[in-house]
Design a protein around this nucleic acid. Sequence first.
DNA 1: TCCAAATAGCACCAAAATGGTGCGCTTAGA
DNA 2: TCTAAGCGCACCATTTTGGTGCTATTTGGA
Lengths: 154, 154
Amino acid sequence: MLQLTKRTEYGLIALVHIAERGAAGCEFVSAREICDRYPIPRRLVAEVLKALQRCEIVESQRGPTGGYALARSPESITLGQIVTALEGAPPLTSCESPILLKSGGCEVHSVCPIRSPVHRVREQLWGLLEHTSLRSLLPPATQAHYAPRAAHAR
Amino acid sequence: MLQLTKRTEYGLIALVHIAERGAAGCEFVSAREICDRYPIPRRLVAEVLKALQRCEIVESQRGPTGGYALARSPESITLGQIVTALEGAPPLTSCESPILLKSGGCEVHSVCPIRSPVHRVREQLWGLLEHTSLRSLLPPATQAHYAPRAAHAR
DNA sequence: TCCAAATAGCACCAAAATGGTGCGCTTAGA
DNA sequence: TCTAAGCGCACCATTTTGGTGCTATTTGGA
């Protein structure tokens, strides 16, 4: 389906929350705090944030006072990166799947009439995701705090 | 996942094939012909084309010499319409799901920090699909045959 | 020094979506 | 009237998805 998974949805909520708390001066945000505020299973938040950490989108700190923080500026984190981290950059159609290419190529291979045009559409779609930054998903007040070049709102 | 289903993929292949054969003078294309040419289960082609018929994208004719034909010009059929016919216009995230809205709204409801920005992204994505016509998916020669204003190639 | 709170890793499970099939009915041209 | 086509319905197996349990491991602070 042309739909994001719950994992990605939870990841987005968590990232936005972490960015907001970060703007408020909090260094590390715990998973507990996130699911106290939103009805998300604690376990899943940890799983999702772990995946985001592997892709260097967040960093984590153990122990009490530990938690998660953005590893980079919200400006430089894109929706495309987040989706890739949590769903693995799936192709739009199966003809483009790298797995199929390995096992002898797309079954429709040489006669496939849609591979190339669909590929074009896929490029556009990912272009859209790559050009949407985490910052643009933040509420205006928080966005101002992360202004690309200083000028902190206030 | 942010991926089209096989159904949609089969639908696209079938539509492109029907358009090509239509350009070559053939009135109705049978499901048999389609899966003779592409390795697609006959049953699925029928199922998919039936769904496309309900949305008035193709029309069907029973009996021998029967089959399927485009109900409208390839110019006026969009990827968005095709995906909607075969996958049902799913929302990008579950907060936007009409089912959830009925059963008391998104569980994260009033505190959901991503609903509105994600909605914006969703609009852009569907805009992309709505602006991609079936015609633009056809090979150049066939595209020429369906030129918006006469001028049939050759 | 030890406790409590936090992340990390692993295996596991149930429900839903997906891809696919069987069978029999109806339509309609040769 | 035969046969090749679409139509409708129920059904099945596999994969993905969402979610849980338990047990380490780290680490700041009482």
